[in-house]
Write a protein that binds this DNA or RNA. Structure first.
Lengths: 239, 239
DNA sequence: GTAGTTGATGTGGTTGGACCACATGGCCTA
DNA sequence: TAGGCCATGTGGTCCAACCACATCAACTAC
């Protein structure tokens, strides 16, 4: 057992036991090192891992933002991991998109029509009015938040986290794809209209229609932007 | 930008550019530190993160198993992250199970009837014959591999990785639950029979039935084992 | 008395150097 | 030729020191 793993296990046990909860603070690095009888180096390696996993946040100086405090940001962890594995080319982008369609369709079908997150989604849509006037980056940023709000309305934290991480892992890719579009303004308008239709379907409690609209919405964008259409929504070749 | 992040970005760029592929080796820690003009400590922190993400594997000594080589194990990364966030109680176990049902149902519906992974699944089922005679741990281990093989048959690497990580993150939990069962042998027998039925449905190309069977299979186990039934497969309270 | 300055304190961030355990491979010896 | 032994290179660990930063308290000048 390597030393930094010992520290990791110690912290994970504290988390599981409830001694350490979100918002709580880890002992200072030097103190923790002495307490566990390991070097500060090993403590730091463990904290780096937890930080990459979205479990803690470290800050220098004094005051409330300093020290190492427990947070919970599963999306960050999953997102970085997926992005890295996409970089190794062991996770095809087409599979990411397909999974995104799966999760978002489910979330749309599952969302309750009076979920408070739908208010956020509506507010985001309002901010996206006249989408042809928005810069691409701003449109995409709002788009991400709209889809996340929709996913959150389904009330499943795991699905929400996975959704966000999928989106994050191919964010740069999607931004590049917009360069392929023949007419960005027209596309933005269409996407915006589809957003309204999706939200309306959810609010009417028509989960089935919402799911179909979401699937068509996502697949439509990637097809138009030129992600190999043969990879999407078709039966796979029988190897 | 913290120093170890600089190293992380350098490596990620190398991965994206294809200069570094799975099976390739990173420069030795000391060499990399000198090359990037940072301390070895910072290089090590970056490598620790990549190791936790399942992107890299480190080994001491000489020979083929030594040094830091690029691998690709997305399941490990997602699994650790989910497990940690379950520990912080920000990811309810019920949501994990629900997501597992979602992904596995989709995979079962999507699997092609002649996928080679189904051979593996069949072999695992054969190894599980007479399940009442298997120790609990062994049964569960084979069970995990069966479900993974089935998920792999759908041909989506992202779904496979997420499936595996979900399973891993609640593995300890599932093992505990078996203690709640009134009659483990009978349950094992039933699960085994359900496995056969699922595989048969996939082989017949009846994806819809396979999906239903999978969902019932998973939900049935957790319900019988005592995971709050109110959390599963029911409309959520309207907050 | 108040306002501004200054230093003490405690936090993570970074560095260099030292030593260890391990695995290989080549050299040297019996 | 066979065996042992050490040189080499790898990651693993530890230590001691220093830095940048942020707060807070004490002090000083007005």
């Amino acid at each position: 057992m390597r030393t930094h793993q010992l520290v990791l296990h110690w912290i994970e046990e504290r988390l599981s036991a409830g001694d350490l909860a979100v918002g709580g603070r880890l002992p200072a690095e030097r103190a923790l090192a002495e307490q566990l009888q390991v070097s500060r180096t090993s403590v730091r390696e463990a904290i780096r891992v937890l930080e990459a996993m979205g479990v803690v946040r470290s800050g220098v100086g004094s005051g409330p933002d300093s020290g190492t405090v427990v947070i919970s940001d599963p999306t960050a962890a999953l997102g970085s991991a997926l992005r890295l594995h996409v970089a190794t080319q062991h996770l095809p982008v087409a599979d990411i998109v397909e999974t995104r369609v799966l999760l978002e369709s489910w979330a749309a079908a599952r969302a309750t029509r009076d979920a408070p997150q739908l208010e956020d989604a509506a507010a985001l849509l309002a901010a996206m009015d006249a989408p042809e006037g928005l810069p691409v980056e701003e449109f995409l940023a709002l788009d991400v938040r709209f889809h996340l709000a929709l996913a959150n309305a389904a009330g499943n934290a795991v699905v929400s986290a996975m959704m966000g991480s999928l989106r994050e892992s191919i964010q740069g890719y999607a931004a590049e794809l917009t360069g392929n579009l023949p007419d960005w303004k027209a596309t933005a308008c269409r996407l915006h209209a589809e957003h309204h239709a999706i939200l309306a379907a959810v609010r009417e409690g028509d989960g089935g229609r919402a799911a179909q609209l979401v699937a068509a919405h996502i697949e439509g964008f990637y097809k138009e932007a030129g992600l190999g259409a043969e990879h999407l929504a078709q039966p796979r070749p029988t190897s």
